[in-house]
């Protein structure tokens, strides 16, 4: 079942230095349960596309549908959990309080809230840290807490913009594993922006390669890898071949200009 459908989506920012074509004629179909990674050089419109899906930006041309609705209708139905590069936790709320925030806004009953908080804390491996304040946690733990916050209200679509960009490789590996695990458990549709080829290949069922000026999709690669992926899969020939395809796609985009 198609969850996100983009047809010839363009998005132009009007700036003081003239128009910036952040997206040009982008077409993409994302099925329910897909894990889609967006990869490409800086400024190719990855963030812009993710924000357009979440109704944080409005396309200037083309058609973007989310579950047969406009992105804004989907937003009103709380279809999105959005994770930014920075955790963005409130310093004056505990971890549990932070996760509770969207639940309070959405009007969940207290008992339900507590139960959901416990469940998502468990999911991101932070059980027992609900009473701590953000500054008492490491950067990786804070980012996991922000993922828990995005998961708590059971949005169908999880959008993540370089969520692990600021973390070191070891923590990143662990979080990647945890994210795959979570995705398998919940069956959510995930849109994931990254700069790392191995990360994109390891996580995704679909890898979208983009290139800049104007921002467009140069290649969409469907991954043949199985859904069960131990970290060791990164040493298999299939994985390496796939990474090579992504690299070629990125190079192609560059030779364009």
């Amino acid at each position: 079942m198609t969850v996100i459908q983009a047809r010839d989506v363009s998005l132009t920012f009007q700036t003081a230095d003239g128009p910036v074509h952040a997206l040009k004629d982008v077409s993409l179909t994302i099925e329910r349960g897909d894990f889609v990674s967006f990869i490409g050089p800086s400024g190719c419109g990855k963030t812009t596309f993710l924000r357009a899906i979440a109704a944080l930006e409005t396309p200037t041309a083309g058609k973007l549908e989310v579950a047969d609705m406009t992105p804004d209708q989907a937003r009103r139905q709380r279809a999105y959990g959005y994770v930014f590069q920075a955790p963005g936790l409130y310093p004056w709320r505990t971890i549990a309080g932070n996760i509770s925030l969207p639940l309070e806004i959405m009007g969940f009953a207290r008992a339900d809230r507590l139960q959901r908080i416990a469940r998502v804390l468990d999911l991101v491996d932070l059980a027992g840290f609900g009473g701590k304040y953000p500054w008492q946690l490491s950067g990786g733990m804070q980012q996991r807490a922000s993922i828990a916050r995005a998961l708590a209200f059971d949005a169908d679509i999880l959008l993540m913009d370089e969520p692990f960009g600021a973390l070191d490789e070891i923590v990143r590996d662990r979080l990647n594993e945890a994210l795959l695990d979570l995705w398998k458990k919940t069956g959510k549709t995930i849109g994931f922006v990254t700069h790392s080829i191995p990360e994109a290949v390891y996580l995704s069922t679909k890898i979208v390669v983009m290139s800049p000026r104007p921002g467009r999709i140069t290649r969409v690669i469907d991954s043949p890898l199985p859904r069960d992926r131990p970290l060791e899969i990164r040493d298999t020939p299939e994985f390496i071949a796939l990474a090579q395809q992504v690299r070629d796609g990125l190079r192609e985009g560059h030779s364009y200009d």
Partner: peptide, 16 residues
């Protein structure tokens, strides 16, 4: 902007 965007994505009212 990020914190306001988060609020927006949760469809929070202006009062909230």
């Amino acid at each position: 902007a990020m914190q306001l965007d988060l609020m927006h994505s949760w469809n929070a009212s202006r009062v909230q």
